Computed example of a mutant assay.
Amino acid sequence: MNFRFYVCTFLLVCSCALSAADLMVEKQKFTLDNFTTFNGKTIKQVNVGWEAYGTLNEEKSNAILITHYFTGNSHAAGKYTKQDAMPGYWDSIIGPGKAIDTDKYYVISSDTLVNASAFDKNVITTGPASINPDTGKPYGLSFPVVTIRDFVNVQKALVESLGIKKLHAVVGASMGSMQSLEWAVTYPDMVERMVSVIGLGQSDAWLVAGLEKWAAPIKQDPLWNNGDYYQGTAPNTGLMLSLATITQEAMHPAIFNASNPKHQNIIDGALNDINATFPVVDWLYGAAKARVNSMDANHILYLVRASQLFIAGHNNDLAASLAKVKAKSLFLPATNDLLLYPEMAKKAHDLIGENSHYEEINGMWGHLDGLFTISQKAKVLSDFLAE
């Protein structure tokens, strides 16, 4: 789910390239003075960053919302400056004349609550690392547990603040697919089309247990200190190990091995010293370490919990929830995804029924085909949005 991380660390290794960005964008801030969570807790002030591409028409009927993945943010397309090394993560499909055509649509993308990159200068988010106005100190674990529904409700407030009463579409990948489907279930009269890329209808037992492996290294780091580390040293070792786990699990073995063509099992260091590491391990951990300073360990834990709790509708009855969907729906899982395997999307598609369309993305990236191979479905997306 850590797409932007992979773009920076793996793209050059695998000799892939994203298209040049045509859009110049800026980050904006949306604020709610009070927000009540799905669990009935109050957050006195919520701030999230957001971006927009294209122009909202007079009728305010051409808005498309992009919902982002686990460690992503609202930077879905374009560049902040011409000097930026990389455009937004879905720049290949968002922009003038592209699948999500900004000559036709007004495309909105927002940071989530508890965004992983709490210390990234281009991310605005409220979460455990934020200052609690009642104490003047970071919330830490006093911040309420939040859900995918809460992410959606903040987005709804943002959309409504722009005078938009109905969305032409909601489109999201991975954790973003949870949000897009939750939109269609919870606010069926506001969503005309729903697109789930490498997505699912609910987190099953296998996924919940797997996600716990992402949280465990952080909790086991002594510096985590039960989430109270903001006045001291951050648990960066645990965070690095967590990000390394996420990285490997989101990649298919084929692309992981192709990224390390010179790997050898027998090398002098590893043969003679149990503390020695393999180059592939150094590569994996090095890529994770490069992201540590912009991220917050507690935020990762809160994102894990939101993802573990997910079932569309948040009522433990998936079939009943999906029966509420009025939006035309499109599911685009990746054939070789070992993290959110295609059967998870197929189950939701089948429950929605005749108003849903299903196609698989074929590629060698695994879960990351939702980013690197999404342009394969550009015409499918374009046609779906035009229907």
Rank of each mutant, 00 (worst) to 15 (best):
E212K: 02
E212A: 06
K213R: 09
K213I: 07
W214P: 03
A215N: 02
A215E: 04
A216P: 09
I218R: 10
I218L: 09
K219S: 09
K219A: 11
K219F: 11
Q220D: 14
Q220Y: 09
Q220I: 00
P222G: 10
P222M: 13
L223M: 04
W224D: 09
N225E: 13
N225L: 12
N225A: 14
N226W: 14
N226K: 15
G227C: 10
D228Q: 09
D228I: 12
D228R: 01
Y230K: 14
Y230L: 15
Y230S: 09
Q231M: 10
T233Y: 14
T233D: 15
A234K: 01
A234S: 00
P235K: 01
N236M: 02
N236I: 01
N236P: 04
T237N: 13
G238V: 14
G238F: 08
L239I: 01
M240A: 10
M240H: 12
M240K: 06
L241C: 14
L241I: 12
S242N: 00
L243H: 07
A244M: 02
T245A: 05
I246C: 13
I246Y: 12
T247Q: 15
T247D: 13
Q248F: 06
E249Y: 03
E249F: 02
A250R: 07
H252I: 15
P253M: 13
P253I: 10
A254V: 15
I255N: 08
I255C: 07
I255H: 05
F256C: 13
N257Q: 13
A258T: 15
S259H: 01
S259G: 05
S259P: 03
S259M: 07
N260K: 04
N260E: 10
P261E: 06
K262C: 11
H263I: 10
Q264R: 09
Q264A: 11
Q264I: 09
N265V: 05
N265M: 03
N265F: 03
I267E: 10
I267R: 06
D268T: 12
G269R: 04
L271D: 06
L271T: 09
L271G: 05
L271W: 04
N272V: 00
N272D: 02
N272K: 03
D273W: 06
I274Y: 07
A276W: 03
F278H: 08
P279R: 14
P279S: 13
V280Y: 03
V280N: 05
V280M: 00
V280P: 03
V281T: 12
V281S: 09
V281W: 11
D282N: 15
W283G: 06
W283V: 00
L284M: 11
Y285R: 13
A287G: 11
A290P: 03
R291M: 08
R291C: 07
N293C: 01
N293Q: 10
S294A: 11
M295T: 09
D296A: 05
D296F: 02
D296E: 01
D296P: 07
N298V: 00
N298F: 00
N298I: 03
H299S: 00
H299N: 08
I300K: 03
I300H: 02
L301C: 06
L301H: 02
L301T: 12
